[in-house]
Design a protein around this nucleic acid. Sequence first.
DNA 1: CCAATTTTTCAATCAATTTTGAACAAACTG
DNA 2: CAGTTTGTTCAAAATTGATTGAAAAATTGG
Lengths: 184, 184
Amino acid sequence: MSRTPAQTRQRAIDLAAETMGELIAFWGFKASMGRIWTLLYLSSSPLPADVIGERTGLSAGAVSMALTELQQWGLCERAVLPAERKRHYRAETDVWGVVRRIVRERELRLVGRSVQRFSEAVELLEESLREHPDDEEAAFMLSRLRGLLSLARIGYQMVESFAEVGMFTLDPIRGALGRANDAS
Amino acid sequence: MSRTPAQTRQRAIDLAAETMGELIAFWGFKASMGRIWTLLYLSSSPLPADVIGERTGLSAGAVSMALTELQQWGLCERAVLPAERKRHYRAETDVWGVVRRIVRERELRLVGRSVQRFSEAVELLEESLREHPDDEEAAFMLSRLRGLLSLARIGYQMVESFAEVGMFTLDPIRGALGRANDAS
DNA sequence: CCAATTTTTCAATCAATTTTGAACAAACTG
DNA sequence: CAGTTTGTTCAAAATTGATTGAAAAATTGG
């Protein structure tokens, strides 16, 4: 037979933490944040920073910074344990709630900025075309750029409804896609 | 007044290309791929590599590599222009089609691997618990781990239906969330 | 308050990724 | 073909991002 219960638990933690680290890294966070969150999520009681460091192999500094960031995103919180000297932390368990908030605060801003900038580019060209109506290259660019803009707007709505309502459909996109592609 | 038409066009291209570069970089591609795709997308005719290099400020090597990758993802294609010596490239305009294919080929695999690995961790613990039924920490971990697994499975279904059908809802998630959180 | 301990900060280091540039290979032209 | 232009490759350089480690700051218990 294979291992002690504690060894098996550690293997399961490592496997899950590594997996979550990859997932969250793909989503633009540091992998170490995912590993720490998972470690806390799988623990029946809150853990102090030094234990987190031991089990994840991160330095005290890295653990401190990662915990700060995790708390800023609402992924972890401090557990109030009067008996303990060290600060202990626990994982937020409402995963989807957190996902929705992050999408709202990060993805939505990003796409919103993009919409603004595409608009800006559209305006630049519209202005130039008023002065130089025969600039055919600009006319072409403008039609394509409007396609990008409408695409970005639909993306914004999708992200928004995902974040707010928890549901979205791609149907409105097909229309815009058609429009964007008419420019070809 | 401000600029020549050509200067205005270039400014509009830079703005849009920079914006798309950021978007695509956030999604895990190289920003230079987004800039090149945008340049091609906004051009009324296919462009050769040296022009792409000039307008994006990238070296010949970088342009060559980026074009190869763009073609692999179906984001650009070679234009057959018999009159021209140099190879010319054009942007794929069916943006949503490309997005769906990439999601299918990349995100779906990633989440699928995660589901497998969480399953593996669950099995490890189940086995250990059969031998050591009193390991309460393991029992706790197992319940949390099952929550992660069901979350990952729902994520897989969401990505899958996004890629295949173009529509998805978060409703089925709430149920699983409830279940996952019962473990707390 | 003080001393001991814990936590944060941040410049330096390490690691991963992207880009360059020059050598090589392939494609075209006359 | 021989020469020229175009395209690719890949090791090295540059850039970007993450982690360390030690000093400074904050916290706690006495």
